[in-house]
Lab assay of single mutants.
Amino acid sequence: GMDVRRLKVNELREELQRRGLDTRGLKAELAERLQAALSGPSSG
């Protein structure tokens, strides 16, 4: 899988935006949010 901790802030935001998620917050928050999205149930 993707290691969200290795991504830069702008990369985290890009991935979040692609999934329609909130791109605001600290890098740690963005990484946590993206990780949750990646490990969560895949819809679609």
Rank of each mutant, 00 (worst) to 15 (best):
R24P: 02
N10Y: 11
A36P: 00
E15V: 03
R18Y: 04
K8F: 05
S39R: 15
A37R: 02
K8G: 15
A37G: 03
R19D: 01
A31E: 10
A28L: 07
L38A: 04
Q35G: 06
D3Q: 08
R24L: 06
N10A: 14
E11L: 05
T23L: 04
R13S: 02
N10S: 14
S39N: 14
V9M: 12
L12N: 00
Q35Y: 12
A37Q: 04
M2Y: 10
S43W: 11
L16I: 01
L26N: 15
G25P: 00
E11W: 06
L26E: 12
L12H: 00
L21Q: 04
P41A: 14
E15G: 02
E29K: 06
D22G: 05
Q35V: 10
E11I: 06
E29W: 06
A36D: 08
V9D: 05
D3S: 08
S42D: 11
G25A: 01
D3Y: 08
R19M: 09
D22I: 04
L7G: 02
L34Q: 01
T23Q: 05
S42L: 13
L30S: 00
A36K: 12
G20V: 00
L7Y: 06
L30G: 00
K8P: 07
R5Q: 11
L7H: 03
R6N: 14
G20Q: 04
S43G: 13
K27W: 15
Q17H: 13
D22H: 05
A28W: 15
K8E: 12
S39P: 05
E15W: 08
K27L: 09
V9S: 05
E14W: 15
E32V: 10
A37I: 06
E14N: 10
D22Y: 04
Q17N: 10
L16W: 01
A28I: 07
V4M: 05
D22P: 10
E29F: 03
E29V: 10
K8V: 04
M2H: 08
E15R: 05
G20K: 05
L7K: 04
V4F: 07
R24Y: 06
R33A: 02
L7E: 02
R18P: 00
K27N: 03
E32T: 10
R6F: 11
P41R: 06
G1Y: 10
R5N: 14
R18T: 04
R5E: 09
S39Q: 13
L21W: 03
V9E: 09
L16T: 01
R13D: 00
R19E: 02
A31L: 15
R5V: 08
L34S: 00
N10W: 15
L26K: 15
E14S: 11
R5L: 11
K8M: 07
V9Y: 15
V9H: 06
E15F: 06
K8A: 10
G25H: 02
S43P: 13
L21V: 03
R33E: 01
L34G: 00
R18Q: 06
L30Y: 00
L7C: 00
L7A: 04
G20D: 04
L7R: 03
V4R: 04
S39K: 12
R6H: 12
L16G: 00
E11M: 06
E14Y: 14
T23V: 07
S39M: 14
R33F: 02
Q17P: 01
L12W: 01
R33N: 02
A37W: 11
P41H: 13
R19L: 15
E32D: 10
A31K: 07
S42Q: 14
G20T: 01
G25V: 01
A31N: 04
N10I: 09
Q35A: 12
L12Y: 01
R19P: 02
P41F: 13
E11H: 05
R5D: 09
T23K: 05
T23Y: 08
S42E: 11
D22M: 04
M2V: 12
L34V: 02
G44D: 11
K8Q: 09
G44I: 12
M2T: 08
G40Q: 14
R5H: 15
L26I: 09
N10R: 15
R13P: 00
E14Q: 13
L26Y: 08
A37N: 05
L12P: 00
R13I: 11
R24Q: 09
L26V: 10
L21N: 02
R19Q: 04
L7P: 02
T23R: 04
R18A: 07
N10V: 09
A28V: 08
R19W: 04
S39F: 13
R33V: 02
R24I: 07
E29A: 10
G44F: 13
T23G: 05
Q35D: 05
S43R: 09
